[in-house]
Design a protein around this nucleic acid. Structure first.
Length: 807
RNA sequence: GCCCGAGUGGUGGAAUGGUUUACACGAGUGACUUAAAAUCACUUGAGCGCAAGCUCAUGCGAGUUCGACUCUCGCCUCGGGCACCA
């Protein structure tokens, strides 16, 4: 008998499938086999960033799993779109290029070639004819086009916002490049620097991003994470008039019922009024405090531990809007400038942070909601109001209503809604990204590049190093920067900022529907046919970034008539990461990385695929184990041998057929639930069964088993299929159905319990009645032993399962 | 500090109210072999016992139930996420 040699057969079939174009999706077409049941299925995985490290075994895990689902759906008759492409712009490539003196476009090209080779070696059934690359001008033409539309509709604007600035490297840093407040490259402490940045107004879509989640088939934890991120809260805005001044401080609170407990107002160090309110004696102290706080990066500010909040008194006071009482104005670093106007009313009795702050600086604590013990802790729950003048005795809920009304009447406040969600910083001062298609004209201001001039190509330059001035490297190319204004033909300059890599990944799934269109983003009929994506799998870490951002962009494209629906993805699932054998993350610095190439070379792609599905629950993080890989390799060896041996037999016995239908049922029920690990276990159980019933297993059974296994282990099953005498590919087979009738057995195992403990097990005929079961049970020696003279109080009978005697 | 998960053999895990430990790994014994590897067969939660068998065990403690890994309450530990969100 020929032995199983994956290295030989896998290449062969990969080429065969590619030549036959098996995996190309057909626009509008009926599915291959079930005419009349025109069911399109669009399955998407997050396209990879082609890093220099090559494919990770983590990619293989989710890709193999999705591929199994895709292959099964094709066999069941669906017209499946399963595309792949490259999220090619990004910071790591630029950094790599600078470090090694290789142009980013060259590095990207090389990395893509490597990724492509690796993906192909796994035999994944992508439709390669639709491959896209976000760094290709033909692609980013449309990324720029989307930006122009956002600009046109007023959803792209410029704002002064702080960035992380490394004073030593003289470059702006991404959050990821800031490690514990220091620059990742040189270790210098990161500072904040104000920079003019392009922003996208995602906040305009906040409500819709929450409301439309309802109808989507997303995991609850994904939905709630997005909802919490958007953070819609209902509350009130209150004005505290500043003493001896015309102006007032506006604060936002969700707990207006605690208004009478305010003992200070605290401003963020960046608050525009902060410096103005400082009085003589405190001036120096406050100034240096503000300077210190501003220097701290967001990172440090966010990580301030309990108790380490700091603050300083400005020396100024404001008036309580209802009592007229004098209230001190403080500055505190725990107040976030970007939220709620950068000012809070401090109610130490009923807010934990305020409580800590008041304790630290000896501010008074005034209880206004009864129910707690404020000498020990802040009482944060709702309760009944006290010390609140005419509102005493009201419940918190009612008080919120009435106090808000009172403030509105006196024009000192109003009901408002606040969101945590912030607008999206959309520009980068880097080379390797899409240039923003805008022109700055001295006369006309900001002028969009006319659509006919798109794409604005990224110039190929030798010097893409940072400029040291916090401007993009593009600003140094005067040939490119200086241009005539498209409106007035006067002298003008190009915008030199580029877009973040999110720009390309926001809409890539739309381009797959029509990847070579030169006239528009994609043909509207094709979009209408394929979208929305039926099933999108990806990582949990993208929940509040890519997944949310791309929903926003899709909604925008829907509003301007480009996207066919309100939501891009109908169903979302997420995979767990693959950890190293030591339980840590795989990382170069730990030296614990597993290269999929090595596994494919040693054991074959089918083994790698099955192992990664078998390793554990799909959505959980699991550590790599090469012993586990060997176990799967043994399983495939067994499939190979038993298939060839049993194909000699003509027919199969009843027991074997029952086991086969049981397996078929298991797969049909568990595949969409992504219970790959138990499905593979089911196959192992089946092959073990075959091993012990070898004579009773016929060719019919083996063939059906191979068809069932083919989505999971495509190469070995295709090879065996042909060895068993078939000319057509196994993937042209129709997905098998199981019959419930075949699963029925004549006898069942009845568990006998006494007081809920198992005491005996008997084989009885199926469909046994309670009376029969009881009679049978009471004759058993082992039961009698326990019953002896005791009284039977109760008998619980669960049909086809167990009988429990209570004594 | 807040939010979300998860705790089951030597290990990864299975079981979502009904035989705890499927499947796999590892370990052990035997067969084949000059030998090893590979393969095959058997054993493998812990304790007591010659055995039949009994007792205990799903992080800890209570509770609901004829019956709890599963449901409820309280606690502990680990992992992931985070924007001190007023």
């Amino acid at each position: 008998m020929e032995s199983y040699n994956p290295q030989e057969i896998e290449k062969k079939w990969q080429q065969y499938w590619e030549e036959k174009k098996f995996f190309q999706a057909e626009d509008f077409s009926l599915p291959r086999r079930q005419a009349g049941k025109d069911q399109k299925q669009y399955l998407l995985l997050e396209f990879p960033y082609p890093s220099g490290d090559g494919l990770h075994v983590g990619h293989c895990r989710s890709y193999s799993a999705l591929d199994a689902i895709v292959r099964q759906k094709r066999m069941a008759g669906a017209n499946v779109l399963f595309p792949i492409g490259w999220d090619a712009f990004g910071l790591p490539t630029e950094n790599y290029a600078i470090k090694h003196g290789v142009h980013p476009s060259v590095a990207t090209e090389k990395n893509i070639a490597n990724f492509k080779r690796q993906l192909k070696s796994l035999g994944l059934s992508f439709d390669w004819s639709r491959e896209i690359n976000t760094a290709d001008p033909k692609y980013y033409k449309w990324t720029q086009w989307i930006f122009l539309k956002l600009f046109e509709k007023g959803l792209a604007y410029q704002a002064e916002i702080p960035i992380n600035w490394c004073p030593a490297c003289k470059i702006g840093l991404a959050n990821e490049e800031v490690v514990a407040g220091n620059c990742e490259r040189c270790g210098a402490p990161v500072q904040r620097k104000i920079q003019k940045q392009w922003m996208l107004k995602i906040t305009a879509y906040a409500d819709r991003l929450i409301d439309d989640l309802e109808k989507l088939d997303f995991p609850e934890r994904v939905k709630s994470q997005q909802i919490n991120w958007i953070g819609k809260s209902f509350g009130a805005e209150v004005n505290f008039p500043i003493t001896d001044s015309q102006s007032s401080i506006s604060v936002f609170t969700t707990r207006i019922d605690t208004l009478f407990g305010v003992t200070a107002v605290v401003l963020a160090p960046e608050h525009p009024l902060a410096e103005k309110l400082v009085t003589g004696e405190n001036k120096e102290k406050v100034k240096s405090y503000i300077a210190e706080a501003k220097k701290k990066s967001d990172f440090e500010r966010e990580k301030l531990e309990k108790g380490s909040k700091s603050g300083v008194f400005t020396g100024s006071f404001c008036k309580h809007p209802l009592t007229g009482e004098e209230i001190p104005i403080w500055i505190g670093d725990y107040v976030i400038s970007a939220y709620g106007g950068g000012a809070v009313m401090m109610v130490p009795a009923h807010d934990k942070r305020d409580y800590d702050f008041a304790k630290k600086y000896g501010l008074s604590i005034k209880e206004v909601v009864s129910g707690g013990d404020i000498s020990k802790n802040a009482f944060v729950d709702y309760g009944v109001l006290i010390n609140s003048e005419k509102f005493n005795g009201l419940k918190s809920e009612e008080a919120i209503e009435k106090i808000t009304k009172e403030l509105e009447k006196k024009k000192l406040g109003k009901k408002t809604i606040q969101y945590k969600l912030r607008d999206w910083v959309f520009s980068r001062q880097h080379y390797w990204g899409e240039p923003m298609p805008l022109i700055h004209c001295e006369k006309c201001g900001i002028v969009p590049v006319p659509e006919k001039d798109l794409p604005v190509e990224l110039p190929y330059i030798e010097k893409y190093q940072p400029t040291g001035t916090s401007e993009s490297p593009l600003s140094a190319i005067s040939d490119w920067v200086n241009i005539k204004c498209p409106k007035c033909v006067g002298p003008a300059k190009r915008e030199t900022d580029t877009m973040p890599n999110w720009a390309g990944s926001n809409w890539y799934f739309m381009r797959y529907c029509d990847p070579n269109n030169n006239k528009e983003l994609a043909d509207s009929k094709k979009l209408k046919y394929w979208l929305p994506v039926d099933w999108y799998n990806g990582g949990m870490e993208h929940t509040t970034l890519h997944l949310l951002y791309s929903r926003f962009i899709y909604k925008f494209l829907f509003d301007i008539g480009v996207a066919p629906q309100k939501e891009p993805y109908q169903k979302r699932t997420s995979h767990g990461i693959v950890l190293a054998a030591d339980g840590r993350k795989m990382s170069k610095s730990f030296g614990n990385i597993v290269n999929p190439d090595d596994i494919v070379k040693k054991y074959g792609a089918d083994t790698l695929r099955i192992y990664e599905m078998f390793m554990g629950p799909f959505d959980q993080a699991i550590a790599w184990s090469e012993d586990g890989v060997r176990g799967v390799s043994r399983f495939l060896e067994k499939v190979w041998k038993k298939s060839l041996v049993c194909a000699e037999n003509k027919t199969s016995g009843q027991d074997v057929l029952r086991a086969l239908h049981k397996l078929n049922k298991k797969i049909n029920e568990e595949l969409d639930l992504m219970k790959f690990n138990t499905i593979i276990a089911g196959f192992m159980e089946f092959t073990n069964f075959v091993q012990s019933h070898q004579e009773g297993v016929g060719k019919d059974t083996i063939e059906k088993m191979l068809v069932l296994l083919s989505p999971f282990a495509p190469h070995i099953t295709e090879e065996l299929w042909q060895k068993l005498g078939h000319r057509e590919s196994i993937f042209m087979e129709k997905w098998p159905e199981f019959s419930e009738k075949m699963l029925k057995k004549d006898t069942i195992t009845l568990i006998i319990q006494i007081n809920g403990r198992v005491r005996d097990i008997i084989e009885v005929k199926a469909g046994i009645s309670e009376r029969e079961a009881k009679e049978l049970t009471l004759t058993r020696e082992r039961v009698k032993k326990y019953l002896s003279d005791k009284e039977v109080k109760k008998v619980i009978f669960v049909a086809e399962k167990l009988i429990n005697i209570v004594i």
